[in-house]
């Protein structure tokens, strides 16, 4: 089990807890979608798994070499080309110079950007930037890949394509992916399991399995989306005054 969360809790200062009693097991090579409305502490949970923040209670087990991280905005360095951005990730990992170049090209090919390596981030479209960002997080070569709403800011056409792209890359690389989103459709489209987090405090309230059937049958997927949306709304309604 690459990731085990046990009774995890987090509060900032004396405020109300952001996360409370979060329990989850994520298996090796699994694709888990973490779904929740705003304020459910999704990002905080990711930061904790990534080791960027410490939990205030509970225990967690994560891979010892840490996790790769992909952000909502591509967060590419504007002074480097697409290729150099990927090479920097390899360099900080301690990969030698000759190998860096080959590996970066390989990763660019993987995200179908083999010809755009010498472009700078501002010359790339939002979808291309996000693919470079994906390649960069793959360059970190960690088994666990954490994604914090990476497609939230993209247009619908690009997002649909990137869903296919991410699924393909996940299958090719065998990574364990924890994908945070507030989009029910996205969660159903990508996750093998969808975990629903409640809001204030965040807690895993229910989970659904998404089968290969759902990948090809829109009717079935739509049905599941409806069920999850209803449950999510129920959670949101609890906060009505």
């Amino acid at each position: 089990m690459p990731v085990v969360l046990e009774h995890l809790g987090k509060r900032f200062g004396d405020g109300a807890p952001v996360l409370d009693d979060v329990n989850a097991n994520i298996g090796r090579g699994e694709f888990v979608a973490l779904l929740g409305a705003s304020g459910c502490g999704k990002s905080t949970l990711l930061n904790i798994i990534a080791g960027l923040e410490a939990p205030t209670s509970g225990a967690l087990e994560v891979p010892s070499d840490g996790a790769a991280f992909m952000f909502q905005d591509a967060a590419l360095f504007p002074w480097l080309t697409a290729r150099e951005n990927i090479e920097l990730a390899l360099k900080l990992r301690g990969v030698g110079k000759a190998e860096r170049r080959a590996k970066a090209q390989e990763l660019l090919e993987l995200v179908h950007l083999g010809a755009a390596g010498d472009k700078r981030p501002h010359e790339l479209s939002g979808g291309m930037r996000q693919r470079v960002s994906l390649a960069r997080s793959l360059a970190q070569d960690r088994q666990l890949l954490l994604m914090d709403e990476p497609f939230a800011a993209l247009d619908a056409i690009t997002r649909d394509l990137l869903h296919d792209e991410l699924e393909r890359i996940w299958k090719e690389t065998g990574r364990t992916i924890v994908f945070v989103t507030h989009n029910v459709r996205e969660a159903v489209r990508l996750g093998q399991r969808v975990l629903l987090l409640s809001s204030r405090p965040g807690r895993v309230v229910q989970e659904w399995a998404v089968t290969e059937e759902h990948r090809t049958d829109a009717g079935l997927a739509g049905q599941l989306t409806g069920v999850i949306t209803a449950r999510l709304r129920e959670e949101i309604r609890r906060h009505a005054k």
Partner: peptide
């Protein structure tokens, strides 16, 4: 029926072509 809920492309080559088309439209 393909919708945003399911796979929308039909394999690696199709995906590559779609993406390259979108890339050139958006750049």
């Amino acid at each position: 029926v393909h919708a945003a809920l399911t796979r929308t492309s039909t394999g690696n080559e199709d995906l590559r072509e779609l993406e390259s088309g979108l890339d050139s439209l958006q750049s």
